[in-house]
Computed example of a mutant assay.
Amino acid sequence: MKGQTIDDIPSAVLEDAAQLVKANSIMGNKMNDVDVVYTMWSNLKKTPGMEVGQVGFHKEKDVRKIRVAKKN
């Protein structure tokens, strides 16, 4: 919805999304206590020298982090 921010995302949605990210990570799915970072797509930055799948951010202050404690 218009006017909503990244901080308006419901915690249940964030938890589900973070679990999916962890489950689909080759390294992350074998670990507990994984930090997943997220931001709005418009904050993603890709430069030519970056590896496949690697991204940066335009504004670090607009990046959030959620911890996935264990496989769920």
Rank of each mutant, 00 (worst) to 15 (best):
A69S: 13
K22V: 11
E15R: 15
F57T: 06
R67T: 15
P48S: 11
K71H: 12
F57Q: 07
V55Q: 05
Y38S: 06
E60V: 15
K71V: 14
D16I: 12
V52L: 13
D7K: 07
G53D: 10
E60C: 10
D16N: 14
K65V: 14
D35E: 08
D8Y: 00
D8A: 00
A18E: 00
P48N: 11
G56S: 09
E15S: 12
V68S: 07
I9S: 02
F57L: 05
A69I: 14
N72T: 09
G28S: 04
N72S: 13
K30M: 13
V36D: 07
D62T: 01
K46V: 13
I66H: 03
K45I: 01
K30N: 08
I9V: 13
V63W: 03
I6W: 00
E60L: 15
V21T: 04
D16M: 14
D8E: 05
V34K: 01
Q4G: 00
E15K: 15
I66A: 07
V63I: 11
G56D: 14
I26P: 07
I6S: 06
Y38Q: 03
S42I: 04
K59F: 11
A23F: 07
L20I: 05
P48G: 10
L44A: 10
G3Y: 02
S11K: 14
I6A: 04
M27D: 10
N72M: 09
D62A: 11
D33H: 13
K65S: 11
V68H: 02
Q4W: 00
P10Q: 04
M50F: 14
D8T: 00
P10T: 00
K30E: 12
A69E: 14
G53R: 08
L14A: 01
V34T: 06
K59H: 11
E60G: 09
A17F: 04
K46Q: 12
T5C: 02
I9E: 01
K59M: 04
T39V: 06
E15D: 12
S25E: 01
V34G: 02
V34R: 03
A18R: 01
G56R: 03
D33A: 08
D33K: 10
K45P: 02
Q54A: 15
E51D: 15
V55W: 06
H58K: 06
N24L: 06
W41K: 12
Q4I: 00
D33G: 06
T5D: 03
H58P: 00
T47S: 04
S42N: 09
M40K: 05
V55C: 14
G3L: 06
M1L: 10
G56H: 02
M50Q: 15
Y38W: 11
S11F: 05
V68C: 05
M31S: 08
S42M: 01
D8W: 00
K2H: 02
M1H: 06
V55E: 09
V34L: 07
K22Y: 03
Q4M: 04
